[in-house]
């Protein structure tokens, strides 16, 4: 399956390398963002669907 990459890219390696580069940088940036998020915030975000603040909902008025 890798033969096609080496054979078909004549003259256009720049595009493949460029795409790989962008993806790599992008992936690193997202990973850094993830590492920097605080645990309390993650918990707050995960609980969002469970508290919809309807009046008869028990969690509606908790701070």
């Amino acid at each position: 399956m890798f033969k096609q990459f080496t054979e078909n890219i004549n003259g256009n390696q720049a595009y493949l390398l460029f795409s790989l580069g962008i993806f790599f940088v992008f992936f690193i940036v997202v990973s850094i963002m993830l590492i920097r998020i605080r645990k309390s915030h993650i918990e707050h975000m995960s609980d969002l669907p469970l508290e919809d603040s309807t009046i008869n909902s028990t969690k509606s008025l908790e701070p």
Binding site: Q4, F5, E7, N8, I9, N12, L16, S19
Partner: peptide, 10 residues
Amino acid sequence: PGWAQSLGVA
């Protein structure tokens, strides 16, 4: 073009 096909596969 072949390179576009390869990019799509990757």
